[in-house]
Write a protein that binds this DNA or RNA. Structure first.
Length: 493
RNA sequence: GGUGUCGUGGCCGAGUGGCUAGGCUCAGCUCUGCAAAAGCUGCUACAGCGGUUCGAAUCCGCUCGACACCUCCA
């Protein structure tokens, strides 16, 4: 029997604004689509957080035994600088500025994106399709929508007719906006003269003569509108109606709203059962923005080379930090927050690393099955990773107590504890067991072991001046000695 | 201005109509030659103002504030 039969997931559906019981369309299978990055620059740390949330969700579904098809696209064309369908293609602009081919831009930042995600120990999605690889599919969708009378062509560009769509369907169903408000609140922008109404959005844009990224179509040589690619790719790989669509909160409007409209227009049914939105990452209480300098690149976390942080942090520390907040909460990225998480993270790892040393007893002083259930309950409640972590620290305390001899555990419970903690920490949260001593090579640890031995001899001889000198000099070099009942270990920081 | 997400203790961050989140910090104790580590104990909270209720930080209304989208930087 699969675990998913024992665990009911309640997840927050942005479409209804409520937590709902997750029921897959096909039992045992989950189809999940997440809007991926536009690869025109280094991946934004906020984007990383969003993808990390869905990585954790992907991992949990897999853990429960679901067969998951997780599709996360790469936007390598069609995303204009301005979401109102004016301005330059972001990738084309970058290519022009750097005097390289647009596909070189795409390649460079796709590689960067994958490197960063690998460093953070992400699982690769099941399919990672690109917008430029699905131009034909996008053109077919446009044809379909034109046939339905919900799109119109002007000067080689094709626009979705929002007002007409709204007569029979509900544009704004996701973002809880009504079209009347949109009409009143839309600013007049230059370059929108082709549209019947400012609310309309582009399905196809005719390329200007100097525009390099262009494909032939029935309407013009041009490129697809930004929103269309996700409809094309999600439909192709997950069907006209699938389980979960995710993305950052910033994509809710207009991007996801437009996706719903396009898909409904095309297939006469709502495309998605559950919409999930990850909240924003801010830094030091403010929006992250390159222009104000309130900004950090993922790589700079690992190197420490950024004025907003005081030291380098291991990727798992940053991952742990982010997972200590719920995915639907705004998270404030601060150096102090990272420092606190780092301490907690290593405490968790230290406890896991002594699991194999624990001696079983005939009784347990801790209810392991209850604890295990609490871990699952936390994940089942809208993927509450902070609650999972709180439960993990309950186990940390217990493990340390067993080691100290103030608590006991049976052989069976110890096995359950190990299995459960490994499942949650490594499989589901996706953390990597990096101990503070991991940076040490065999040569280093051999040398330190020797010093530990010399210190023990000095202590035995009551030569505390020497023993303290060894301890303090090592500490000054970043090597900390930890005296325990069964000898001394060391860790580096 | 509209829409959405929020507003919790020294800091970060969960959660619930009446009962311990957790992490970090801090204080005391145990252990230690002294420390560190670990363990134990302690500390303090629910933006403000109304309302519903036997009881609200948890529900409702208003106010103030934050963040995001609607307007380039995810």
């Amino acid at each position: 029997m699969q675990l998913y039969n024992q665990h009911t997931i309640n997840l927050y559906n942005s479409l209804t604004g409520e937590k709902e019981t997750f029921k897959p369309i096909h039992e045992g299978y989950v189809g999940m689509y997440v809007c991926g990055p536009t690869v025109y620059s280094n991946v934004h740390l906020g984007n990383v957080r969003t993808f990390m949330s869905f990585d954790m969700i992907f991992r949990y579904f897999k853990h429960l035994g679901y067969k998951v098809r997780y599709v996360r696209n790469i936007t390598d064309a069609g995303h204009l600088e301005n979401d109102a369908d004016v301005g330059e293609d972001r990738i084309a602009k970058k290519a022009r500025l750097e005097e390289i081919e647009p596909m070189e831009v795409v390649q460079r930042y796709t590689v960067d994106f994958h490197n960063i995600l690998n460093t953070f120990n992400f699982l690769p999605p099941s399919i990672e399709p690109t917008a430029t690889g699905h131009i034909i599919e996008q053109i077919e969708i446009i044809k379909n929508i034109i046939e339905k009378g919900l799109a119109y062509e002007v000067n080689g560009s094709v626009y979705f007719d929002v007002l007409k769509y709204n007569k029979t369907k509900q544009y704004g169903i996701l973002s809880k906006r009504n079209v009347e408000d949109l009409i009143h609140n839309t600013r007049e922008l230059d370059g929108q003269s082709d549209k019947k109404n400012p609310q309309d959005f582009a399905l196809w844009k005719k390329a200007e003569p100097q525009h390099i990224m262009r494909w032939p179509s029935p309407w013009s040589d041009g490129f697809p509108g930004w929103h269309l690619e996700c409809t094309a790719m999600s439909t192709k790989y997950l069907g006209e109606h699938f389980d979960i669509h995710g993305g950052g909160m910033d994509l809710k409007f207009p991007h996801h709203e437009c996706e719903i409209a396009q898909a409904e227009a095309c297939n006469n049914q709502a495309p998605v059962n559950y919409w999930m939105h990850a909240n924003m990452l801010i830094m030091n209480g403010k929006k992250m923005a390159k222009s104000t300098g309130n900004f950090i690149l993922p790589n700079e976390i690992f190197s420490g080379d950024n004025p907003h942080i005081t030291k380098a942090y291991a990727p798992s520390v940053a991952r742990f930090f982010m997972l200590q907040a719920h995915y639907r909460s705004v998270l404030d990225f601060t150096n102090n927050g990272l420092l606190a998480s780092e301490k907690g993270f290593y405490r968790l790892m230290d406890a896991i690393n002594i699991l194999d040393e624990l001696k079983p007893s005939t009784t347990s002083t801790f209810d392991i099955s209850d604890w295990k259930q609490k871990c699952y309950d936390a994940m089942n409640d809208d993927f509450n990773s902070p609650m999972v972590i709180a439960n993990l620290f309950e186990a940390v305390k217990y493990i340390n107590q067993i080691k100290d001899g103030s608590a006991t555990i049976t052989k069976e419970d110890l096995a359950t504890l190990k299995n459960t903690i490994n499942a949650f920490v490594f499989d589901i949260l996706g953390l990597v067991n990096v101990t503070k001593a991991d940076t040490g090579t065999d040569k280093l640890s051999g040398a330190v072991e020797l010093l530990i031995q010399l210190r023990q001899e000095a202590r035995a001889n009551k030569d505390f001046a020497m023993s303290d000198k060894i301890r303090d000099e090592l500490a000054a070099k970043g090597i900390q000695l930890n005296d325990g009942k069964e000898g001394t270990t060391f860790s580096t920081n």
